[in-house]
Design a protein around this nucleic acid. Sequence first.
DNA 1: ATGGCAATAGAGTATTGA
Length: 255
Amino acid sequence: MKIATWNVNSLKVRLQHLLTWLEANPVDVLCIQETKLTDDRFPLADIEAAGYHAAFTGQKTYNGVAILSKHPIDDIQKNNPHFEDEQQRILAATIAGMRIVCAYMPNGQEIGSDKFAYKMAWLAALREWIAAEMRAHPNLALLGDYNIAPEERDVHDPAEWENHIHFTPPEREAMQELMGLGLKDAFRLFEQSEKQYSWWDYRQMAFRRNRGLRIDHILLSETLASRCIACHIDRETRKWEQPSDHVPVVATLED
DNA sequence: ATGGCAATAGAGTATTGA
C-alpha cells in the first residue's frame, strides 16, 4: 500500500505530469493540492482512464484539493466541519480501511498579516477536528502541503529563513501540536540523507542549488506508523519541463 | 533590502504563492 501527496500547482497545467508520474508510480492513493479548478473542469475522464477513482473540491484560480485512489472512496468530507472557510483546502475520505485527509494548508504570507492570522486559526481548527477524526478512525493519515518546515534540517539555510513564513516559531509550534495528537512524520521514521526538500523556489536556480524547504508531509497515526516501512521524496518531477515547484512524497505501508 | 519566477484572470498589469 502506497500513499502519496503532491502539490501540482495547477492541475490544468500539470495533468500530463500527473498521468506520467502515476504510470511510473502507481500508488494506491494520491492526495493533490492546488488544482486551481472548479469541479466542472476537473479532468475526471483522464484520471479514470488511468485507473483511478477521484474525489475533488475546487475553486477558480486558488486552492483546490483532490484524492485519487485505486480503491473505492467512501464517506467524503469537504472542508473542516468546524471551521467556516470559503477556500477549498481539505478533503477527507475513507479508503481501504484508512481515513485519508488531504490538506492544503494556508501560506500565511508573513507574521502580523491577516493571512498569518488566518493560517493560525485554520491550523488550530484543523487540530481540533483531526483529534475528533482520530477518535473515530484510528487508521488516519494526514497528507498534504503543510506550508511549514518543522525543523532546521528541513530548511536549506535556517538563518536566512529565521522568522520567515513557513519557518516561524508559531507555525512550527502548530505543527508540533498536530503531531502531539499522536501523529508521526512518516519521512522521519527512517534514516534519510541530508538536505532533502519537497519545494524549491522557481527563481534563482533554487532547485539546481538545492535551496529548498521540506513543507510537504505525510503524518500517520500510531497504527499506520507501525505499518510504515518506507517514505521518500521523489525529486525527479522537479527536473521535468515546466514543473510544479513541489514534488511528490510517498509512504509505503505494509498490507 | 529588493526582486527574481510561475499561474491566473483577462487584456496591462495585479494578486498570490512559498
